[in-house]
């Protein structure tokens, strides 16, 4: 298998998304600070969005928007897959809401006198 053939079999979007997922999981597991965990979750979420969207990446096609140059009869032959895009669109908005909820728990824990390291909540495990 030649180098060119190998490269053409890589989905560049899925590859970078998968590595971002790994970075995010590593950050969540390795860092004790609550704010740092929220940041790592954001990175993880971007990676997951990239992986979902990678299933709709088709080389050399345009965005799924019709105009005078592309009418409905040729649309399916010229445009990328719109379904993953619609899914990811809503996932991004939910991601912001979840991040805000996560951060407000962290703020609340600190305001009640706790630390912001997850180590200080070891007693609450079970």
């Amino acid at each position: 298998m030649s180098i060119l053939e190998f490269v053409s079999r890589i989905n560049p979007v899925a590859a970078s998304g998968a590595v971002l997922v790994l970075v995010g999981v590593w950050g969540v597991l390795a860092r004790p600070n609550l704010f740092k965990i929220a940041i790592a979750t954001s990175v993880l979420e971007t990676g997951v969005n990239l992986v979902i969207l990678s299933t709709g990446y088709i080389r050399g096609r345009t965005a799924p928007i019709l105009d005078s140059a592309a009418d409905a009869s040729t649309a399916a032959a010229r445009m990328t897959d719109p379904v993953p895009q619609a899914l990811v669109l809503t996932a991004i908005v939910i991601g912001l809401a979840v991040t805000a909820l996560q951060l407000s728990y962290a703020v609340r824990l600190r305001a009640a006198g706790g630390g912001s390291s997850i180590e200080s909540y070891g007693d609450e495990k079970w």
Partner: peptide, 8 residues
């Protein structure tokens, strides 16, 4: 997923 699937 990253290396084997390719682009549709």
């Amino acid at each position: 997923l990253a290396l084997g699937t390719g682009v549709p």
